[in-house]
Amino acid sequence: MPRYEYRCRSCGDTFELSRPMAESAAPATCPVGHDDTVKLLSTVAVGGSAKPSPAPPAAGGGCCGGGRCG
């Protein structure tokens, strides 16, 4: 279940809630009990290392690349 981060406008507390995506925009009450909260935009961190894709072969090279099959 996704976690969403909210901030209370009354006390300034930031908190997280686990809730279904369909309820992500539903009102949230802060842990102190205030109802004036706003959902914060989250940044997504992706770990790992990506390797660049190999370059496609140059045009005209290889079988049928230059139009001379046969």
Rank of each mutant, 00 (worst) to 15 (best):
S10H: 15
T43L: 14
G47L: 10
C30T: 10
G62N: 12
C8F: 03
G67M: 06
G48Y: 01
G12F: 04
S24D: 06
A26Q: 12
G60R: 12
A25F: 08
A28Y: 01
A28M: 06
R3T: 15
T29L: 01
A55E: 15
M1F: 05
E5I: 07
H34Q: 11
G48I: 01
S18R: 13
C63G: 06
A59N: 08
M21S: 13
G65T: 12
G12T: 04
R68Y: 03
G12C: 08
M21H: 10
K39R: 15
P2V: 11
C64E: 13
M1V: 02
A45I: 00
P20Q: 07
G70Y: 02
R7P: 00
C63A: 12
G48N: 03
A50W: 07
D13F: 04
D13K: 15
P56C: 04
C63N: 09
E23W: 07
T14K: 09
T29A: 11
T29G: 04
L17N: 03
R19K: 12
E23T: 09
V44E: 13
A55V: 13
C69E: 14
D35P: 05
C11L: 05
P57L: 10
P31D: 11
R3A: 11
G47C: 05
G65W: 10
C69G: 15
Y6F: 14
S53E: 14
S49R: 14
P57A: 12
G66T: 10
D13C: 07
A55H: 07
S49L: 08
A59G: 03
G12L: 10
D35V: 09
P57N: 03
C8M: 05
G48W: 01
V32S: 14
R68A: 12
G65Y: 08
Y4V: 10
A22S: 15
P54S: 10
Y6H: 09
V38I: 12
L41H: 12
C69S: 14
G12R: 13
C11E: 11
G33T: 00
K51L: 00
R9A: 00
S53D: 14
G70V: 11
G65M: 10
D13P: 00
Y6A: 04
K39C: 03
R68P: 02
E5A: 05
V32C: 07
L40Y: 08
A58W: 05
Y6T: 05
A25T: 13
R68Q: 11
G12H: 09
G65N: 11
S53R: 13
Y6I: 08
S10T: 12
E23L: 15
T43D: 10
P2L: 02
G60V: 13
T37E: 01
L17I: 15
S53W: 04
G66A: 07
A58L: 10
R9I: 01
G66S: 09
L41D: 15
P56G: 06
G33F: 01
C30A: 09
D36T: 04
E23P: 05
G70I: 06
T14V: 15
D36Y: 05
C64Q: 10
A22H: 03
S18V: 09
G62M: 12
S53V: 05
P20Y: 07
S24T: 11
K39V: 01
M1T: 06
R9T: 00
G62A: 11
P2G: 07
Y6P: 02
E16M: 10
A58Q: 14
R68F: 03
M21Q: 14
A59C: 06
C8W: 03
P57C: 08
G48P: 09
T14P: 04
G33E: 02
C11P: 13
P52Q: 06
K51Y: 01
T29S: 11
A55C: 07
